[in-house]
């Protein structure tokens, strides 16, 4: 700050002196120093409005060095992203740095940049985890849709590391979005079978799978029947749909999604006993399949939550 003051003062007085020099030779030579002081004073007065001499400059290189020396955990997400970008810019980056950058960017909602970082990471090291993260970011970017590009990335991840749970879960989600509930259920059961019972992912995946598989599905034949009956009340329509589902399950009982849907609908109608019965039927038919216990437990948990909500 002192250096700044000295420099500024020198600049001001040299300029003012040079400008007023011709006046020293005239009759009113007193004007020269007066004008010099006035000009320098005006300059300092204008400078002082909004000046921040107390703030040091912060060139990017210096800011970058400060971030590099800091504990990454003590940095904000934005600072961590910059730290990784600085490392990459400096040329010392490996696939891990790109992968970490991709994850941080994805968490910050900067999906397009995250995709680019994951692509760089995959270019350096084709790794199952990176493929999976990349594909999940593609899903985020496409508002939850499992696109063809995401699907092929998950398939590559599953090929490189079959024990990784995410690929089969998201491939199941892709099948579900395509309307293939049986394939979705198969893949999700496969995912859950590969996870230990106490794995925190198990409950998350089971809960999501149970929720999706139990969502009511439009039956085209039933929709046509309802369209022909415009006088029906909403309750009558719901009853007809539940009846249709029950009839379908009586003919084709090997439908996990169907039983879960029936349980959910019955619970929504307040018939808890029928809901439990539907879940029991599902347990009898699918309980022996690997991964099914976790899925049915999640469905039962959701049912209990709903009952608790009703009691409240």
């Amino acid at each position: 700050m002192i250096a700044l003051g000295v420099l500024a003062a020198i600049a001001a007085f040299v300029a003012a002196f040079l400008v007023t020099w011709p006046l020293l030779g005239g009759k009113r030579r007193w004007l020269a120093p007066a004008a010099a002081v006035f000009a320098a004073g005006l300059a300092f007065a204008v400078y002082a409005i909004g000046a921040r001499p107390d703030l040091p400059g912060l060139p990017y290189d210096r800011a970058s060095a400060q971030r590099a020396e800091a504990d990454p955990m003590a940095l904000t997400r934005g600072e961590r992203i910059l730290r990784l970008q600085d490392m990459i810019r400096a040329g010392g980056a490996d696939a891990q740095a790109f992968n970490l950058l991709g994850r941080e960017l994805a968490r910050a909602g900067r999906d397009l940049e995250a995709v680019s970082a994951f692509e760089q990471a995959l270019h350096l090291s084709p790794d199952a985890r990176i493929y999976s993260d990349f594909a999940q970011t593609l899903i985020n970017l496409n508002e939850g849709r499992v696109t063809a590009e995401a699907r092929s990335a998950f398939e590559e991840a599953a090929r490189l590391d079959p024990s990784l749970p995410e690929p089969s879960f998201f491939l199941g989600l892709g099948a579900y979005q395509d309307g293939d509930r049986d394939e979705a259920a198969r893949l999700w059961l496969l995912t859950l079978a590969g996870l230990a019972a106490d794995d925190p992912f198990s409950a998350v995946i089971a809960g999501r799978a149970a929720d999706l598989l139990s969502r009511p599905q439009a039956d085209p034949a039933l929709v046509a029947e309802l369209a022909d009956s415009p006088d029906m009340t909403p309750d009558q329509r719901i009853a007809l749909m539940v009846e249709g589902l029950e009839r379908r399950l009586s003919f084709a009982p090997d439908d996990l999604s169907g039983w879960l849907t029936l349980a959910r609908v019955k619970a929504a109608l307040g018939d808890d006993a029928a809901a439990r019965a539907a879940l029991g039927e599902a347990r009898v038919r699918f309980g022996a399949e690997p991964g099914a216990q976790a899925l049915l437990a999640a469905a039962e948990g959701a049912l209990l939550d709903e009952e608790a909500d009703e009691e409240r």
Binding site: A11, L42, V46, R52
Partner: peptide, 14 residues
């Protein structure tokens, strides 16, 4: 930055 700011002020006075 501060020197630049001052030079603008100086140009004004000049």
């Amino acid at each position: 930055a501060e020197l630049g700011r001052f030079l603008i002020a100086l140009a004004l006075a000049l």
